[in-house]
Amino acid sequence: MIVAGCDVGSLTAKAVILNEGKMLSYAIIRSTARPEESAHSVMEKALEEACLSFDDIRYTVATGYGRDNIPFINDAVSEISCHGRGALWLMPGVQMIIDIGGQDCKAIKLDKDGRVVKFTTNDKCAAGTGRFLEVMAKLLGLSLEELGTLSAQARNPMDLAAACTVWAQTEVIHHLNNGTSIEDITAAINQAMAKRVAMIANSLGVERNACITGGVAKNVGVVNYLEKLLGVKLKKPPRVDPQVIGALGAAVLAYERLERNKEC
């Protein structure tokens, strides 16, 4: 019994294929302007990986900003519920999920049965989201991974005025001109990011059993600093790219819904 989850975000689209509750494949692509197009492409890619076709899929749940415009799905569920479900499936017992995606940042609290009891998201602009890091990495001519790893070598990290992504660029240029080392600047960027995320997470109350998902989970600089700020070790999703948790959750929900429909 094959099901799929499809997460169409504003920057990337993700798809996960499950068979009998086991993951067969997943795919991540850059989103295009049309959500249905992105959904189709990413599904095709994931299906190809699993040597399957659209006809093999029994149930699809979509999530993400573009979820309502996808023709081939059975159900649409919010990212927050999907992230909660996906994280719990990978990391049983997890009680808090911090997800930092391209355009937003969310903190989700689950009860012991995995139900979302409370969540919050950033209310602002790109500051505190993956977009911020992308802009900064581009400005410094670094890859996202380098932005994460270089900060470990910082000697004298300073505070970066990073309330606004656009202005933070001016600040970074300022530091570059003053001869501040790239390592110190990357540390400042990661710290600024972590501080904003910590504030969001703290407003929900941090649980010991917490994990981090989303593209930014790949930035070790941000994650390390965030752990320091929150005083907890953050679990990272095993086996899969942390970006696909939403799509995975959607696939798990698809599986569960199909099972439930069968029972009825």
Partner: peptide, 13 residues
């Protein structure tokens, strides 16, 4: 009261 909005260096410039 919050130097994280705009740094003094930027303001000074």
């Amino acid at each position: 009261f919050d130097h994280r909005i705009t740094s003094w260096e930027s303001m000074r410039d």
